[in-house]
Design a binder for these strands. Sequence first.
DNA 1: AAATGCATGTAACGCGTTACATGATTTT
DNA 2: AAAATCATGTAACGCGTTACATGCATTT
Lengths: 181, 181
Amino acid sequence: MSTSNRTDVALLGLLASEPRSGYDIKKAIEEQLSHFWSESVGNIYPRLKRLHERGLLTKEVHTQQGRPDRSVYALTDAGHEALRGWFSQPTRPTPPRQELLLKVAFGRHAPPGVLVEQVRQYRARRAADIGQFEAIHAMLEQEAAGHPDLPYWLITLRAGIRAARAAVAWADDTIPVLEDL
Amino acid sequence: MSTSNRTDVALLGLLASEPRSGYDIKKAIEEQLSHFWSESVGNIYPRLKRLHERGLLTKEVHTQQGRPDRSVYALTDAGHEALRGWFSQPTRPTPPRQELLLKVAFGRHAPPGVLVEQVRQYRARRAADIGQFEAIHAMLEQEAAGHPDLPYWLITLRAGIRAARAAVAWADDTIPVLEDL
DNA sequence: AAATGCATGTAACGCGTTACATGATTTT
DNA sequence: AAAATCATGTAACGCGTTACATGCATTT
């Protein structure tokens, strides 16, 4: 019964707040969760199908004119229970895979200059992230005031901000060191 | 020719400093890279085999008495070139998947109390990481003084320290917020 | 006229993990 | 006596991405 699959729980979590189609879910992930989560369509549709077959989701086909039909899914009681079960399970850390740090670790064998350049580009990306996350944070505080999910969204954004700031600080430590090697 | 596979480049990078067996590689990853990289045996051996077949590695079988044979691999010129090529390629960011943040984002639907508990446990793990990374950093500075890879290792450790500190700071922000909801 | 959005789905593939299999040696 | 270390490898499986297929409606 329990669902340990990561995609499954993401789908269940999104459907807990409102019924949605696969298409809706894809958009919601891109718009709201993209700084800490991602899913591909080729994974979403088959997973929704299986969750429905397993009785964790209901499915309603909404016919539209001039547009493809929408298959709208919603949580069943079993779906709610699976979601609750997941919350209580220990969060196992994902096996880490940071390719940039791998390059740094093997840096002695890198062609001269490329490593600093890699770190500079990384710094630029992460610095841009900070501004973006802060802007969304400020915007949400105003425009989503009173929304029951707001405090949770803000917490995830602050995680992104903290992580991006740490990344920039690390890059600022690192660039001069690499330049002097 | 070029190798975009992440496991392959990890193997090439490790073999760039010295020839090793699959077993050696597994240990080296666990001991030196574990805070930002991981590989499983079931992946290492087939990958080494393929890299050898593709001419990026040489293979030497060392017979031993009372112990299984060791297959020791080393970089060929083509292997060196593949490694160098990888350094210059842009580092594509891994699609993010932070399960804890997913739980937080859906926090409204969590059973009371479990979310704070999850964040507390996360904080504890990350706080322990800080101490561990700092200890290794200090130890390496002394005991690996003069090693040509030392500056690169220290840089990766400082990345770990920065990230862990940011994580702890975020948890310290977050826990009181969750307690008051 | 071309591109984007809406909407669903599948097939092929690559990646990587887990578990299994083997068996002597050394440490606890 | 039990467990860990040394050492290699495979088979099965699950996960997830990419690319493909379709086709109307709307926007540029």
